[in-house]
């Protein structure tokens, strides 16, 4: 197979690509991993309010070493800051923001996304030795829209965009859009539609790396 030359996006470039699509005024929850990096690429003059499920609305970046506050952490248990206009709430109110459909967007990582929008991101087997779900199922079911950001394939080269998920589901028909190191894809009634591709990558190259059938948006 002859291929054009292309460069996959780095983790930071993927985060920046997601940030590009978040408009001012949105309330947004970012999952652990690449999603957390997204906040770094939203320009300071664009007011986007970040939510952390442990009861922080209006979360800011990591503190300077001198300003570290052990009482202020995010869902990944890293120390963070609170921006002007921020607020603290208890867990039931924090999840009311999620489950009540008040968040405009949640960005999560995932193991697999299926062409019908099913997502698997919490366990890799039904007999996981020590399963843990956290807030993933609430976020996937409750936010107004769910975007997934993840590598396009596993380290072994297996497509993470699939016909149907093989891993235990986090939520059914929940994902609206997927950002990978190779492409941006919308989940539609007709399956994955390619919105954007890494520079130099052709549609056929992308399809060759994807289990689910693709179409052009």
């Amino acid at each position: 197979m002859s291929e054009t030359s292309f460069t996959p996006l780095s983790r930071k470039q993927m985060a920046a690509r997601v940030a590009q699509d978040i408009p001012e005024g949105w309330y947004v929850n970012l999952g652990i991993g690449i999603p957390t990096l997204v906040a770094d690429f939203v320009p300071a003059e664009r007011e986007v309010v970040f939510h952390s499920e442990n009861g922080v609305l209006g979360m800011g970046p990591a503190p300077a070493p001198d300003d570290a506050d052990p009482w202020l952490i995010n869902a990944g248990k890293q120390q963070v800051t609170l921006l002007r206009g921020g607020a603290y709430v208890h867990h039931a109110d924090s999840f009311a923001m999620i489950r009540g459909g008040h968040l405009d967007l949640c960005v999560l990582g995932a193991f697999e996304v299926a062409e019908n929008g099913d997502v698997a991101n919490w366990a890799t087997s039904a007999n996981d030795t020590a399963p843990a779900v956290g807030g993933a199922m609430d976020l996937a079911a409750g936010a107004k829209r769910l975007w997934v950001v993840m590598e396009h394939t596993t380290k072994e080269g297996r497509s993470k965009l699939v016909h149907r998920c093989g891993y235990p589901l986090t939520a059914m028909r929940a994902v609206r859009r997927v950002y990978t190191n190779l492409a941006v894809l919308d989940v539609t009634e007709q399956g994955f539609a390619v919105v954007d591709m890494a520079p130099g990558l052709s549609f056929d190259d992308l399809q060759a790396r994807t289990d689910a059938p693709l179409r052009k948006a």
Binding site: H91, V133, G135, D138
Partner: peptide
């Protein structure tokens, strides 16, 4: 018993 975090709080 694993419970989604928001379901646990609710």
């Amino acid at each position: 018993e694993i419970v989604p975090q928001g379901t646990l709080a609710e």
